[in-house]
Design a protein around this nucleic acid. Sequence first.
DNA 1: CAGTGGATGCTCT
DNA 2: GAGCATCCACTGT
Length: 195
Amino acid sequence: MNRDFFDRSVHEVARELIGCELRVGPTAGVIVETEAYEENDPACHAYIGRTTRNEVLFGPPGHAYVYLSYGIHSLLNFVTESEGSASAVLIRALEPTDGIELMRERRGRDEIEQLCSGPGKLSEALGVDLSLNGADLLAPPFELVEREGEFEITASPRIGITKAADLPWRYCVAGSRFVSRPWPSAASSVVGHAA
DNA sequence: CAGTGGATGCTCT
DNA sequence: GAGCATCCACTGT
């Protein structure tokens, strides 16, 4: 995967990431759930302007934006189209494929559905923390592999936010049991197929 | 199952 | 000092 992959609309990147493999060191999984956060979006950290916390969002695309949520969880985002638009994709869930035993140790859980089914869980399982804020996604410990096969993608409202909560900017693999939460069937719609 | 509340720390006002 | 892009354990059906 190259830098151009990230240098386009955050919504396009959020959908294209579905089905890609994300590797962090010895652990890896297939991305099954993402959310888009664009600069002119009250729920986006960049909305309030540039601060010390969110400055990575204003930097070049293809880098990791990691921040601490609720004082406990590190949440992993991919910076996109940053030329004049500080936007990012939140990685919300993976289907684990490699390093599963290590993930189990880090998570303290055995069930494979409980290893990466949420942004906080996923970071813990992959060993992502604040030290990776600003890190290049195209260099170790990160590795991203373009998807193989087809995925039916649904769009539904984002999770856990209060601002702009009605926008359908959460993307999931249809029918996956590895997503953080089931989507509301009435609000979801198939938005595309992955090649 | 569904609903509730505590843990925990950093950022911004 | 308030407010979080969360998770888990506990309660009550």
